[in-house]
Design a protein around this nucleic acid. Structure first.
Lengths: 236, 236
DNA sequence: TTTATTTATTTGTGATCACATTTACTGTTA
DNA sequence: TAACAGTAAATGTGATCACAAATAAATAAA
């Protein structure tokens, strides 16, 4: 009954207090972020509904929302799929991240107080723990948590949704990236960022964030890995 | 039967080739962009469906999509509304526009050829025409068209959706801004941008775009106008 | 074996319905 | 007059159904 590849989506317990649509949304979002849905794979409402054991209605709404966030792509008039990646698009997404997140960090800096700094230090420690254990999934999750915590220090911040959209688009690739992470960069620039925060040095903070992002993908910039990924993702 | 203020949405002919949901989406999007829906006004699916003379289903989907683009806000668990504006949020949106659009312009620069430059010049002339006629609505539309044309010169560009999200959030305020536009800035920085394009000077282009955006809102930065707007928009 | 054409199946869209929750209204009490 | 409780109306969520368009499958022709 399955069309191409069998989709394996991680299912979590559905919280009764949350609407089915919301649960479906976050489930599918995680699936995209973890690269569980191959780029180019055609998704149908009914198929996903069957997998998630819900009616087609919540799936419909979740898919439309994910498409609006650029996590999914609506082809022509009908089918929906995870967008394919290209080397150029990857590069653009990476540069967009650097620009937007540097901006968000600088704008958050004036709002960072002692409490917030303590939170950031704790989150950075969590990342180190995950790195020691080699838990690749957790490294990504906690890394995002650190960045999110930093940017949301600014109570009037408006860029986080845009940043998360970029994370979502890079998600399927980050998964691949992480699988090579252990052998390469296990150190991040978070300490550097925290130092800049202490000194209230916006420029230094921006540089630290930019480096953190760039180095996280630096090895992906090697031609052979990029080619690998594009071949896997871009080929029909 | 109407709850608070009667909503007056501009209705356009529905193209038969387009789905009802898409038509509803763009209709509501324009309504938000033109400030036809007051911030804070509670929207209900059935009310909008009645106004647009469609079934609730397409409205449901369109609302969710607009919410995902940050054009609308889902309150608590239920109602949806146009988000209220604050002075700080306005400032953040403006700065985010400058950062993102400068970035998009610089990234587009290498791809601008003779054809594209001709397009930009033509679009800039259209803006001048609209300004001569004093057609405020068209000025906004054509201004966006110019910026969009510039950024999409980059075929791998990924930031336009994010930029459009910012435009949407500023939309209700731009309408108010435009009503004062005639007395203030009728000149833009587009010529400056075109010059920078000719010289392939990325930094100059970024400066021109940043100035164009900033000056477009400069008068809005005057305390009394900002206060006016916030009072109108933020008060329950 | 390959290509074209017809048939069968699947799919997205949109409509309608049921229900639990929320909101609005009404009459009553301090 | 203001605050409250109880009732009535309205609302979002989710399910199911109908249908036209699109895709896949099957058959026929080269």
């Amino acid at each position: 009954m399955d069309k191409k590849s069998p989709i394996q989506i991680t299912l979590t317990k559905r919280d009764e207090a949350v609407t089915i649509t919301q649960w479906v949304y976050s489930t599918l979002r995680n699936a995209v972020m973890n690269g569980q849905i191959l780029p180019g794979r055609a998704l149908t409402i009914r198929e996903l509904a069957a997998i998630l054991d819900v009616s087609p209605m919540p799936v419909r709404e979740a898919l439309r929302q994910l498409a609006a966030e650029n996590a999914l792509e609506i082809q022509g008039n009908r089918r929906v799929m995870v967008p394919k990646m290209t080397a150029m698009k990857f590069s653009e997404l990476c540069e967009a991240r650097i620009t937007l997140e540097s901006h968000a960090a600088a704008r958050a800096l004036p709002y960072i107080d002692k409490d917030k700094r303590a939170q950031l230090i704790a989150l950075d420690k969590d990342i180190d723990d995950a790195q020691d254990k080699g838990d690749l999934e957790q490294i990504t999750v906690r890394n995002q948590r650190f960045h999110r915590c930093l940017y949301t220090a600014n109570p009037h911040q408006v860029t986080l949704p845009l940043i998360e959209s970029l994370w979502l688009q890079l998600g399927p690739f980050m998964k691949l990236a992480n699988s090579r992470l252990k052998e390469h960069y296990t150190i991040d620039r978070h300490n550097e960022a925290l130092e800049a925060i202490n000194k209230k040095d916006a420029l230094a903070l921006q540089m630290a964030i930019a480096s953190d992002i760039r180095e996280g993908f630096a090895f992906a910039g090697t031609p052979e890995l990029l080619y690998n990924f594009i071949e896997q993702s871009g080929a029909e």
